[in-house]
Design a protein around this nucleic acid. Structure first.
Lengths: 116, 116
DNA sequence: GGCGTTCATTGACAGTCGTCTATACGTTGA
DNA sequence: TCAACGTATAGACGACTGTCAATGAACGCC
């Protein structure tokens, strides 16, 4: 994950100085790290999760609020949340029994910057 | 594909009036269309292709220029180009023997707008 | 017309991914 | 300490995806 973060930052900020986006050829390693991050978002269930969390009060939600709207089983939702968390897009915080998830906006902004 | 384009536009522009991005819950259909578009980009080879084309003179390139830098077979590169073209991200133009590909910037901008 | 070149398509195969059921884990309250 | 609840993990299975070798189709040139 740290490896991915670094690679994305490199693409956004440029190897040394100036922002590049996709304006410069991509090394295979960098491309793979970037693709891995994009794959985390490129799933309908995970997009729905992001939208649900982002539009929840306080921009956070617990699993119990997310399972039913998605129409998927609890383990499946948990799996998707893990993928997003591992990618650094979501933040997990335990409060007693519940796991609360919030979005890391900088991470999504990085992605958007790369694409453009 | 037209269906995908419409769904993405809906997410960018909002159901009726105002831009939403992911700030509003996503219908499954919309999420699937969006995911399909993201999947097209979420591949290392295709990211490299986009970067190569974008950084080529005139922001266009033919297959013969793309196969070697990627280190993949010609059919595989052709496959990836088809995926990007079908997603509306690339534009294909035949000139005699050669196929030239160029990027559709608005399409990438739409994607970036949705993510943010 | 025949041939070489460039690209697209087909078919096959291994690997990955999304989903589920079953089960384990951790926390809370009695 | 134990039971109940919310969540995470493991294992299995079908579907999709990326890749290649082989083949086909379109075009320009001799």
């Amino acid at each position: 994950m740290a490896r991915v973060t670094q690679a994305v930052k490199a693409v956004v900020a440029g190897p040394a100085c100036c922002p590049t986006g996709l304006n410069t050829p991509l090394e295979r390693d960098t491309a793979e790290a970037l693709a891995q991050l994009l794959k985390a978002v490129a799933d309908p269930a995970r997009l729905q999760l992001l939208a649900l969390i982002k539009s929840s009060p306080g921009a956070e939600a617990c699993v119990c609020d997310l399972t039913e709207p998605l129409g998927l089983s609890q383990p499946t939702v948990s799996h998707h949340l893990k993928v997003l968390t591992d990618a650094g897009i979501l933040l997990r915080e335990r409060r007693g029994i519940w796991s609360w998830f919030s979005i890391v906006p900088e991470r999504l902004a990085e992605l958007a910057a790369v694409i453009n």
